[in-house]
Amino acid sequence: MVINVKNLVKRYGNLIALDHFNLEVQEGEILGLLGPNGSGKTTAINCILSLLKYDKGTIEIYDQPMSPEAYAIKRNIGVVMQNVAVFNELTVYENIDYFCGLYVSDKQTRKKLVAEAIDFVGLNDFKKFYPKKLSGGLLRRLNIACGIAHKPKLIILDEPTVAVDPQSRNNILEGIMELNRQGATIIYTSHYMEEIEQICSRIAIMDKGKIIAMGTNEDLKKMIKSGEHINLELLNPEELELSEIKSLPHVISAELTDHQLVVKSSRGKNNLIMILDHLKDQNIGIGKIYSEPPTLNDVFLEITGKELRD
């Protein structure tokens, strides 16, 4: 096992940031820590990295207890912080070389690793640039390169795509998947469920310092009643009796906004056909129709009663 966290408790005064937090990370997986802001993701990461003292619990990495002095363990970890942590006074190359040099002392090996990291994040044209001259996306890439240049076995990325444009975000996500393909175990925290769904092999959903659900994307969606979201554009919505829709089998909720009817239904066959038949019987014309599978937000909503993005 790569990481084994048991009953971790972290308090800030009266506030419990981590409430008996448990986590197991297996070799070769991309584990996503998903949760709204303030759910305890970063606190958990900081405790795992021994950047924060905790009140209770145990943390083991590669079957060794983790502590601020566990330098042998730290040698195998790559860290990409939520805030970009680079030297503004050093160029892109010098920054990566600095952080890589904290792990790799041999100059020749380091030179090769730095070149590979620069290549990996696509900063070849910006090697001599100072961080202040880089765009937000490029800066995030530099932050990642500084964390992964020494080719760690375990990479912890704490919200690495905050304030990054969609194109750069896709580049970063593809890069993370590539690192995983090369053999790295990855812990990825984010409050963007789409990112987590896209890259993570296993997802842990956090709220109020606890993991409230854990499993693969599919496992999590199977845990909830919601099956699909059916969206229909109605041509004459004034004819619709919403209560009749709500009384149809498997329908959990139905909402009408202007011409848009959104029906949330539980798992079941022919849900869409039943709704269409009913609308036809009521002589209600239909424009566009589309159906969406449940999202992680639905999972979160159903478990906690609140939206993930609240």
Partner: peptide, 12 residues
Amino acid sequence: DLKRRNLCSPIR
């Protein structure tokens, strides 16, 4: 941020 990042490294 830099201080925390340095603390993650295997240097005492």
